[in-house]
Design a binder for these strands. Sequence first.
RNA 1: GCCGCUGUGGUGGAAUUGGCAGACACCCGGGACUUAAAAUCCCGUGGGAGCAAUCCCGUACCGGUUCAAGUCCGGUCAGCGGCACCA
Length: 803
Amino acid sequence: MDYQFQQIEKKWQEIWEKENTFKVLDDKTLPKFYALVEFPYPSGHGLHVGHPRSYTALDIVARKRRMDGYNVLYPIGWDAFGLPTENFAIANKIHPKKVTADNVANFKRQLKSIGFSFDWTKEINTTDPAYYKWTQWIFLKLFEKGLAYKQEMPINFCTSCKVGLANEEVVNGVCERCGSEVVRKNKSQWMLKITEYAQRLIDDLDDLNYIEKVKIQQKNWIGRSEGAEVQFAVSGTDDILTVYTTRPDTLFGATYMVLSPEHPYLDKYKDKIKNYEAAVQYREEAARKSEFERTELAKEKTGVKLEGLCAINPVNKKEIPIFISDYVLMSYGTGAIMAVPAHDDRDWDFAKKFDLPIIEVVSGGEDVQKAAYTDTDSGIMVNSGFLDGMEVKEAISAIRDYLEKEGIGKKKVNYKLRDWVFSRQRYWGEPIPLVHCDKCGWVALPESELPLTLPEVDNYEPTDNGESPLSKIEDWVNTTCPKCGGHAVRETDTMPQWAGSSWYFLRYIDPMNNDALASQEAINYWLPVDWYNGGMEHTTLHLLYSRFWHKFLYDIGVVNTPEPYAKRTSHGMILGENNEKMSKSRGNVVNPDDIVNEFGADTFRTYEMFIGAFDQATPWSMNGVKGCYRFIERVWNLQGLLTDEEGYSADMETTMHKTVKKVSEDIERMKFNTAIASLMALINDFYKKGSITRGELKTFLLLLNPTAPHITEEMWVLAGFEGKLHEAKWPTYDEAKTKDETVEIVLQVCGKLKDKIMVAAGLDKAGLEQAVLADEKVKKLLDGKTVVKTICVPDKLVNFVVK
RNA sequence: GCCGCUGUGGUGGAAUUGGCAGACACCCGGGACUUAAAAUCCCGUGGGAGCAAUCCCGUACCGGUUCAAGUCCGGUCAGCGGCACCA
């Protein structure tokens, strides 16, 4: 009988759908397992072969956990607000709601064709008012607790299209659509105080089972640094300038000061600055650049000296010049730095360019006139008054004490993390449920008015002044104040796409609830998420934002755990066959539909897992797909080798136990490629032997089922095994039976491989040495040589060091 | 530039805590089957020398630690992900 994957896969997918096979069980006494994958953005391009890599991986884990006896929640939904849909809608004159519905339908069909064990009764969509009601509710709670505030922040604005642009739409400083100049335009925007949670977001990582590189990247992103704020008097004024530095020890070496071009002193001392015009011009030029461009170390340093203003170094009372330069950002520290060219690379570059003095204050490096010496682990303070002779770390603490005592500075912890810009001047997002009343200021809508739905309009195109498209809808904008009943206007900016994805895992556990984002009962049972897999590209934004929201919800008593995800793993990208990122323009895109149609879902799933190390990027290969198809077909043809024997045959027993152990452990460690490799090796054994017992087939089908669920279910039924395969128990192994009786020992002389011999397994060092020395080959090998040392590694090798 | 990751045959990759480099596949070559082709099955397959036993070289590059290094340490080069309004 031929392997008819179309019929088999259709049959089982219909059974799973009809019987709701993967719906979570109501029984909350069972141990639970919550597996989560990043829900897709339903783009017009359809499913990418990268999506199923993550989805298959956790599908395998979820299916195995069900066989282990867990009540498993493995849900899916749609992160559907966002820019591409809106832009597609504008370009094609189709409403984003319609675009989204069409794309979701297509994604859903594709996901179902691959046979994932999602609980489809839990499906969610961030653009559904019943969902975003709760996104808005969380925002109102943040607002109520003072964690949402308004601030002037720059947006990208195309001077020709007259629209606000996302960073992605700005390519090399010009508008992606028309090629015109893009400027940064200030606009008052809603901000969320994620910085208030910075320390907890670092500290709580310690107890989480996240892969190490995710923890490191999050910590670096939050960027805690311990330093000091130092006050410099400004000559000719009563004012002071506060700088932040992580190297207060080098204060005696500060030979100039640099302000961010946006620093308020520029306008404040307009009259004192003789070259104010030049400074303003420089500020305008800087406004055109992104922060990324501004902080690039490789670029030539630029700046303007503020003529007429001087700062006084508080420790040695020396007058030093003040510059503005774009490498200093207003968004970090105080927007002002003291420059120590001898011990900072950027300051050194700047000092060379503007011919400023470079004074060594830490000795131990090369000539500071040739390069900055930035090492803090060795070196002794010089030219630094009372700090002279101290080591750097000693000096840091001494100067910090001195600054506090003298009242000219203080210890200060800073974070690179910045507050979250939460406003978008776009239509296709959650409306921000606030109104502005002339009398009462910003007022929250009462909970009873949620959800505040997006107005149904025909024209959702951007405005020509950078405002949100919603601002044009007058009868929506004008409303009454919930507090005083007077006239008020609605906030017209919408939320960023990150909003809906910051709490979606909470909605899955109780998606129909209209009274709370989820019931207490569901929260108590299902949280936290046990295993969350996603891309490395989400490490610093999505993952951090959702941890922040969850901590906030914990603080106000909505959830019962301080962290949302107990475990986080990450998958690598799938590249095109040419080893480049898949993209339409490169013409290297693989459509999952084509693979499923030609080879079947089981082959597709197997290949996605066999393609390479799960956490590594790897190129697609059609030949690799064919190889997996051959494997699946060989699985099908095992039916021709089947005997009547029930257990394992004697010569296969060790191999069977070994394979059960290997596959079980590899799935838990996400080594899916080697799990499949061991099943391939096993099937090769069956073919070499020409037979497989019923017991062996049963175990083989159980082990392969999470990876290739359709073919294994079908073969289970055809072989007449009891019940349905997915209801069976995961096979067990006996540790003692995974061990061979004899092992091969590697013989080395001076670390070089010379020979291999078989000895009994489990010998200790002395026993192994004895057994090896008794061997004829070894006697020959050591003939005429003096053994200086013998290294024995039980069950592995013996190494003779000879003279 | 900053932060993080990666580098192993012709290709994807494998190799618990340092202990046989190349598992499992793909490609390629040879054979069986076939009128033929496809499919399938069997064999070979890191490079070099040799009839052979066997020997030498080999995990991006340079150096170090060790009886032993793909694995640890220092440096260099190359590629990839992120850099806050793509998601």
